[in-house]
Design a protein around this nucleic acid. Sequence first.
DNA 1: ATAATTGTTGAGACTGAGTCTCAACAAAGT
DNA 2: ACTTTGTTGAGACTCAGTCTCAACAATTAT
Lengths: 139, 139
Amino acid sequence: MDTNKLLSKYSIRSTKARQEIAKAIISLRHKHFCAEEVIERLRKKEIKVSRASAYRLVKLFSKRGVLRPVDLNKRWQMYETSFDKNHHDHLYCLNCGKIIEFENRAIENLQTKVCKEKKFKPLKHSLKILGLCRECDNA
Amino acid sequence: MDTNKLLSKYSIRSTKARQEIAKAIISLRHKHFCAEEVIERLRKKEIKVSRASAYRLVKLFSKRGVLRPVDLNKRWQMYETSFDKNHHDHLYCLNCGKIIEFENRAIENLQTKVCKEKKFKPLKHSLKILGLCRECDNA
DNA sequence: ATAATTGTTGAGACTGAGTCTCAACAAAGT
DNA sequence: ACTTTGTTGAGACTCAGTCTCAACAATTAT
Ligand SMILES: [Mn+2]
Ligand SMILES: [Mn+2]
Ligand SMILES: [Zn+2]
Ligand SMILES: [Zn+2]
């Protein structure tokens, strides 16, 4: 994953700081993460980038669609990369924090139907189911 | 709506402060509101109750099921009363902030099905569709 | 190339919704 | 009455996120 290509693809001026932040974000692509985790990643690799710059790029990525904000934690704004996965929704285990992703066309179609009935133009949505994963339920 | 009955029903010790806070909450029952709005309501009626007590009762109500937390605003924790409405989900207009409520059994059934497939025990869920209401879309 | 313009950076101050502290007080139990 | 337990209010505190602003870097114009 080339950070410069990612930045130029979204018309984001490439700078040393942004390359480093982008690299940290890409390294977190298999998780759901918050800005503070990106900063932590940089800190561990002893890369000096300002907190403000990390927050700024995360927000810019979110606006440009590189990152997708996910409502999984009310304390931190969580994100996931969008370049490597399609839209999906989440099951969240209240006991261990595990996140299971799922896609369901039938649900999405019904959502469209509801919006039609309510004369509402849907732009995005979030469906989150909270409960217990298999392991936590059997314990 | 009798505040004392509400409090005793949920085994919450009745005090002067709680009665006033409960009254303010009940007066907001047709809205989606945050703790700060409850406090504002009390302030306007020149009822002296501590900010901390208002936050405490809102949280206690939420835990006991008098209030249902709703993810509608990332800055404030929003709530709705549960004693006067059944579970439902929300359409949220990104332009004017209007909230349209809906219930759809078919969607809920499909959610249950997804959880079965993923061996996940659902406890609660939140479905929020963001977009434009009829008025804002036609403008 | 050089200069002018425009966007970005870092350090740290600031914001504000929500929480915590703790001594005074009030309710319930005995 | 006395003890135990829960509640209150005022304000200090937390901390994820934002803002400021002067120095700097990238781009554009000359
Ligand atoms: Mn995901
Ligand atoms: Mn509602
Ligand atoms: Zn679990
Ligand atoms: Zn609208």
